[in-house]
Structure formats: C-alpha cells, structure tokens
C-alpha cells in the first residue's frame, strides 16, 4: 500500500542545510495501523507532510497505491489529497463557521459528489463516529475537543480514502477521550481496510498499533512490527 524509499527533505537555514527527513525507507501494507513516534523536531510532522503531498521531498520515492507522489503534477496532487488520503490534525482544523455536517461534506464537494449524496454520507459518517444527531448541526465552537476530533475523523473518511494520515490525533484530548478516538481509528482500519499512519507522542497508543516507526533527527531509527 505505502512504500517510502530513501526519502529526504532538506531545508536551508542560513548557510546550513537542515535534514528534516534523511534517507527514510519503510513500508506499510494495506489495512495496517502504523504509528510514528519521536521527540519534537525529530521529523514526524515533516514525514506526514510528505506522505500527504502537502510538501515535496528533496529526493526519494513515495509510492501510495502504486502511484509515485514525487512524479505527480500539481493537479494530480490535488486529486491525490482529495480522494486517496484523509487527514486528521491534532487541533482538528475544522472550518469554524460551518456546522459539523458541512465540515464533513466539504471534501466530498471538492471531489464533485452531488449535494444530496454528500449530505447523506456526512450524516452517516457522523453517526459512525458517534456524534449525536443534535450536535451534527452545531458549529465547531459549540463542540468539545473529542467531538471535534470525531467530526475531523468523519471528514477524513468522507471520500473513502485508502490512507489516513493522523497528526497527534489524541494530542489535545484527555486520556479517556484519546483512548476512545484511538479505538475509533483502530476499528476503522479493521472494518474499512483503511491504512492509517498516526504520528503520536503517546507510547501507550503506539504500542497498540500494528507497526511503530521511531524517528530521531530525521532518521528512521526503529521499525517495530
């Protein structure tokens, strides 16, 4: 499903070149739930940006479902972000003036799905992630952190992506809610066959995933399966 080969990303900081990711190579089969751990600045978020085609690598290869991201044009990358992957962010990143349903409908609109179908699917997804009916019409500001993350998960699932990339999905949640969200993601990977890669600090969560990659100074130092 996902194969990363010799992936490198460098930034220039003054006269020096900083390696945010250095020669990373790993593979994640379809339907697996993998976690990426490491200290702050170890390159976890950079790796996620590269996998999500939010940023372009300096060198290396990223093959997702047979497609080499490094060789895609900009418009193909937009389509990749829209249809092949789903993003879950630490701070949810919901659009504040849209309701929960409208937030979930957004990626489906970008994918060109008709309005009736996207509304029905949004309601269905919000029910799946356990957001009560009365809260589905609320704007993010009137939802708790856990509820917002549920909406974010529903949004990530909207276009039935093959890969979900989660950046600290439980980072802003209390432990109970965090566990609920983790279980939700884990269940989805099992039921939908979706590959999930989650960046986390929480070792207890990382320990429950199918694979754990440890990054240090931009390098992959451990691949535990």
């Amino acid at each position: 499903m996902l194969r990363v080969t010799q992936l490198t990303k460098t930034f220039r900081s003054g006269d020096t070149e900083v390696y945010a990711a250095s020669n990373i190579t790993f593979e994640v089969p379809k339907g697996q739930f993998a976690s990426v751990i490491g200290r702050s600045g170890s390159g976890k978020s950079t790796l996620l940006s590269l996998l999500g085609a939010l940023d372009k690598p300096t060198s290396g290869e990223i093959i997702v479902d047979g497609q080499d991201l490094t060789k895609l044009h900009d418009h193909q990358l937009i389509s990749y972000r829209c249809k092949t992957i789903g993003f879950i962010f630490q701070n949810y990143n919901l659009v504040p003036n849209l309701t929960a349903i409208e937030n979930v409908m957004l990626p489906m609109e970008f994918a060109g799905m008709p309005k009736k179908q996207r509304k029905a699917r949004a309601i269905d997804l919000l029910n799946q992630v356990g957001l009560q009916d009365d809260k589905q019409l609320r704007k993010p500001g009137r939802l708790s952190g856990g509820e917002q993350q549920r909406v974010a998960i529903a949004r990530a699932l909207a276009n039935k992506p093959k890969l979900i990339l989660a950046d600290e999905p439980t980072g802003n949640l209390d432990s109970t809610t965090g566990k609920m969200i983790f279980d939700l993601l884990h269940g989805l990977s099992r039921s939908e066959g979706t590959t999930i890669i989650a960046v986390t600090h929480d070792l207890s969560i990382a320990g429950k995933t199918d694979a754990t990659f440890t990054l240090q100074d931009g390098k992959l130092v451990s691949d535990a399966r």
Partner: peptide
C-alpha cells in the same frame, strides 16, 4: 491562512 491550508490539504484547488 491556516484555514486555506486546511482546504488545500483536504483537496481544494487554488481556483476553488
């Protein structure tokens, strides 16, 4: 700016 980034990250084109 962040909201624009989110929209682009979840599949919105520049034109949209």
């Amino acid at each position: 700016k962040r909201e624009i980034g989110v929209a682009k990250a979840i599949g919105a084109s520049n034109i949209r």
